[in-house]
Every structure is written in C-alpha cells, then in structure tokens.
C-alpha cells in the first residue's frame, strides 16, 4: 500500500509543481497517471523514491515513512521500489547480465559489485526473470546491441531483481513503436498479477492507459483532478485534464473514439 498525503514540491522559489497531492495505491493494482507535459507526473514518481526531494507532505510505503529517511536508510528503502524509465537508462557498455545484476547493487557488498562476483541465487533469479520476458539468450550481449523493446525488457528485469514492493514506470513506452509499446504494457500488467505488485505508470498514450490499467489518475498543474476506473474517463474528463493544450498535441484523440466503439 502506497499512501501519499499533502505532497508539495516546488523547485527554487517558483510556483509549486505538486500542490498538496493525495493518492493511495492499494494491493496489486495497475494505475495510470495521465496529464499534459508539465503537469507534474514525472516529479510525482521521482518524489516517491526520492530522486526528487519533496518540499513537504508524506509518502508511506507498506508502513515505512519514506519521507523521513536519509543516507543508508534511504538507500535501503529504494531497494524496495523498482523504477522503469522512458529512455531505459541501461548502462550501454555493460552486458545485459551486468545491467540486470545492477538491480541488486543495493544489496551487494561493494567488492562483489566491482568484481562482478554475483551470488548464485542472484544469477539464477536473473536467468529466470530474463527467461520470463524472453531475453535470456542476450545475457552476454552489450546492452546497446539490443532493440528498444528488448532494452526496456532489460529495464523491467533490472527493476524486478530488486524484489520490489512497488514498480514505478515513467513513460515506459514513449520511446517504443506502437506494437512493442503494447507488448511492454501487457508485460507490466502480467507481472503486476504474478508478483502481486502495485504498478504506477506515467503515460501519454491514453488509449493504452485505458486498455492495460485498472485505474486512471488524471493530473493537471500539480493536482489530481480525475481518479476513477478507465471506463469513467470520458471526453469531458479528457478535456478537463488536457485543457489548455492544443488538441493536435493530444495525439491519442484519434485512438480514443474507435476504442470506445470497440468496447460498446
């Protein structure tokens, strides 16, 4: 259970990016966060694992107050939070196996990490997970030799290696082609069920959000203005969330109408 209350983030002296935000994510639900660029989606995710320091408010994960932590305590807490990035953020020049094992860096003694002396159970777990997402045969390849979809799978496995209690995905499909993008969303949903993991996904593609998630949170200018099941996201709600943004920038518009026709 992730519990965020009265979260405020401001950079410097400017207007706050997050304006007293409350959000609860129970159990293993897959939650999409949508909103125009600059609405604060990315900042929200990065406040949860403290890559961005919240200005005020509290964030609690399964009883642990994340906002109180610092130093070693914070690093230990970060092991429990997996993150998947838009640009994958793999270490290009390292092998797939090293990238996957880097998910264990929070647990490993430094010498083991530096010498690449990974424990047996970690290696077994890595092969299992890579097998699960279909990249086991790439273990010895350099990460930059893989295609976009394959690289994001490495990113997903790296996060799962942490044995996380929650997954944060920041635009995980924005750099992928439509087909691969759907495969990754499908994978995230399946993994959420398999590992009973709550997954929080920032996403621009509203059609995919509706298809693959259990709940949609709409953000606008640092506030949550919509929070309901995907079916409840109608045109009026969309207009509200994306108000002030020219319609043509909202590439998803074209997809939404036929999708609703399919559901009907």
């Amino acid at each position: 259970m992730l519990k965020i209350s009265q979260l405020v983030k401001r950079y410097g002296n400017g207007a706050p990016v997050l304006k007293g935000l409350d959000l609860e994510v129970p159990g293993d639900s897959v939650v999409a966060i949508i909103g125009a660029s600059g609405a604060g989606k990315s900042t929200l995710l990065r406040c949860i694992n403290r890559l961005v320091e919240p200005s005020s408010g509290t964030i609690e994960l399964n009883g642990l107050m994340l906002t109180d932590l610092k130093g070693a305590g914070l690093r230990a807490a970060r092991r429990r939070i997996g993150m998947i990035f838009q640009g994958f953020n793999l270490v290009d020049r390292l092998t797939v196996m090293e990238n996957v094992q880097s998910g264990r860096l929070g647990y490993l003694p430094t010498w083991r990490a530096v010498m690449r002396r990974y424990p047996k159970e970690d290696i077994r777990r890595a092969y299992e997970l890579m097998e699960r997402v279909g990249i086991a045969h790439y273990a010895n390849k350099r990460a930059d030799e893989l295609s976009g979809g394959e690289r994001q799978r490495v990113g997903v496995v790296r996060a799962l290696m942490q044995e996380p209690e929650i997954l944060l995905a920041d635009e995980p499909t924005a750099s992928l082609d439509p087909k691969t993008s759907e495969q990754i969303m499908e994978l995230l949903r399946a993994l959420s069920r398999e590992f009973s993991l709550p997954v929080l996904i920032n996403i621009h593609n509203v059609a995919e959000a509706k298809l693959y998630t259990d709940r949609i949170v709409g953000m606008r200018y640092g506030r949550i203005i919509f929070d309901a099941a995907p079916a409840a996201l109608d045109q009026a709600a969309m207009d509200e969330i994306y108000a002030g943004v020219p319609a043509e920038e909202r590439g998803e518009m074209g997809n939404v109408t036929p999708l609703r026709a399919k559901n009907a």
């Binding site: 694992n49 890559l51 914070l74 690093r75 230990a76 807490a77 970060r78 092991r79 939070i81 997996g82 993150m83 990035f85 953020n89 793999l90 270490v91 880097s102 998910g103 264990r104 860096l105 929070g106 490993l108 430094t110 990490a113 530096v114 790296r158 996060a159 942490q162």
Partner: peptide, 13 residues
C-alpha cells in the same frame, strides 16, 4: 539516476 533508484551506494554507482 537508474543506479540511485535501485539503492546503490556512491562507489558502486
């Protein structure tokens, strides 16, 4: 950022 997000320390990062 990815290494920090998994909880890696300064030197492993």
């Amino acid at each position: 950022e990815a290494m920090r997000s998994v909880g890696a320390g300064y030197f492993p990062t």
